[in-house]
Structure formats: structure tokens, C-alpha cells
């Protein structure tokens, strides 16, 4: 038995992860270069190039919002996504509304635990499925065009505003069922930080300080959860 456990761990750590890390690095860095494809085409095919002052002004505006998230988000979501999920989720975007929920439901459906080797492999399948489905639906949508979507009754379009909070509630409960005490802790920390943000008490931080809310919520909950585990207040 112990030998078998050793072998499966070796497959994961000696074959799977090195393969994923090598190809993840190659594909994500290739994608970083290819993300400049449209501006390259605009400059070379159409001769359209904004002044460097305009590009810099746009860049400074956006990086003041997104710059902190470049680091905070990968680190905060890593314990959930694992190595393969991190490469895929940050390549494909739409993380909280699509990739994380699909990773979580895949693990529930396969009956594997989040944070284990099996969990990492299964969440990869869920995220891959979500990428394929999303590209298919958006491609159909862009071919049919905005006219078709505009033809939908206003009520139907407005209703989709509510799908995101419903997903957040469902995923929160899926994990809170496993650790109800930590669920309460997380809501208290997240609620307090959100309140601070809303009341303007985080305004001393540079940029849009919602990055402070996410990092304190995630790592604050980890710190309290670990403390509770060490005192036997929760079990795995």
C-alpha cells in the first residue's frame, strides 16, 4: 500500500507537474507576446500608432488599478487553482465568475478533495471544459452579432446581472458545508474589510484598494483556520 502511494505521488510530482510547468511557461509567455498582435496589426497593416505619451497615459491609469492585482490575484487564488489551474485561469480570464466555480464543481462531482493531487488534476478538467464552452458560446455570439442579443427582452438581459451573486453564494456554501466554522470566520473578515473599503477607511492605500480586501480575506482566513486546526477546533 505504502509503495503504491509512493508511486502515484511520483507520477504527480515527477511527471505531471514538470510537464505542466514547462508547457505552462511556454504557452503563457507566448500568449503574452501574442496579446500584442492587435496593436501590432494596427501599427503595421493600418499605420495607426498613438503617441507614446497617449499610450503611457493609458498605461499609468490602468496599472494604478490592475498592477497590484497582477501579484495579489495569482498568489491568493493559487491555493485553490494549483499549478495547472493557475496557468489556465490567468491565460483565459474570467476567474471568479467562471474558472473557480467550474474547478470547484468538478472536484465535488468527482468526489475528490480540494488541495490534494487528485483535486488539482480534476480541477484542471473542469477549467479546461469551461474554456472550451466559453470560447464556443462567445464565437457563436459574435457571429450571430449584437443584433440577436439586442432582440432579447430587456428583462432577460437584466436578469443575468443576478447570476454572479448566485454563483458566489453557491460556491461559498459548497465549501462552508465542509468547514462551517471557517465559513463564518471568512464572512466576518470579508465583511469587515468590505465595510472598511466602502466607508473609505482604506483610502490611504494607493490605487483602488480592493486588492487589500482580497489579500486580507484570503490570508486572514488561512491564518485563523490554521490556528483553529492546531488547537483541534476543526478537523479535516
Amino acid at each position: 500500500m505504502s509503495e503504491e502511494v509512493g508511486t502515484t505521488a511520483n507520477v504527480f510530482e515527477d511527471e505531471y507537474i514538470p510537464f505542466i510547468s514547462r508547457w505552462g511557461m511556454i504557452t503563457n509567455l507566448t500568449a503574452a507576446v501574442l496579446s500584442f498582435g492587435p496593436v501590432f496589426v494596427l501599427a503595421t497593416v493600418f499605420g495607426v500608432m498613438p503617441t507614446s505619451a497617449a499610450i503611457l497615459a493609458g498605461f499609468v491609469s490602468i496599472i494604478s488599478v490592475s498592477g497590484a492585482f497582477w501579484i495579489v490575484e495569482p498568489i491568493s487564488y493559487f491555493p485553490v487553482l494549483g499549478i495547472p489551474g493557475t496557468y489556465m485561469a490567468f491565460m483565459s480570464g474570467n476567474i471568479s465568475n467562471l474558472r473557480l466555480p467550474c474547478a470547484a464543481v468538478a472536484q465535488e462531482s468527482a468526489g475528490v478533495e480540494a488541495g490534494t493531487n487528485e483535486g488539482a488534476i480534476i480541477s484542471t478538467l473542469g477549467v479546461a471544459a469551461s474554456i472550451i464552452v466559453n470560447v464556443i458560446i462567445l464565437t457563436i455570439g459574435v457571429i450571430l452579432g449584437a443584433a440577436l442579443i439586442d432582440a432579447l427582452p430587456e428583462g432577460v438581459r437584466a436578469a443575468f446581472d443576478n447570476i454572479l451573486p448566485a454563483i458566489f453564494g453557491a460556491i461559498f456554501v459548497q465549501f462552508a458545508l465542509a468547514q462551517p466554522k471557517i465559513g463564518v470566520v471568512a464572512l466576518v473578515i470579508g465583511g469587515f474589510m468590505t465595510w472598511l473599503l466602502r466607508e473609505g477607511y482604506l483610502a490611504f492605500l494607493p490605487g483602488v484598494p480592493s486588492y487589500a480586501v482580497i489579500i486580507v480575506s484570503v490570508f486572514g482566513t488561512i491564518a485563523v483556520g490554521r490556528w483553529m486546526f492546531e488547537r483541534g477546533m476543526i478537523r479535516t
Binding site: 491568493s76 491555493p79 488541495g115 480575506s217
Partner: peptide, 17 residues
């Protein structure tokens, strides 16, 4: 696994609240 569940609950508590 506890760390992962904590991280998930923390992230979704942030998104939820």
C-alpha cells in the same frame, strides 16, 4: 486541504460580502 478550503472561503467571502 485546510489551507485550500480557507483560501476558497476567504476569496468567496470577499466576492460575496
Amino acid at each position: 486541504p485546510v489551507i485550500t478550503i480557507c483560501a476558497m472561503l476567504g476569496a468567496f467571502a470577499y466576492l460575496s460580502t
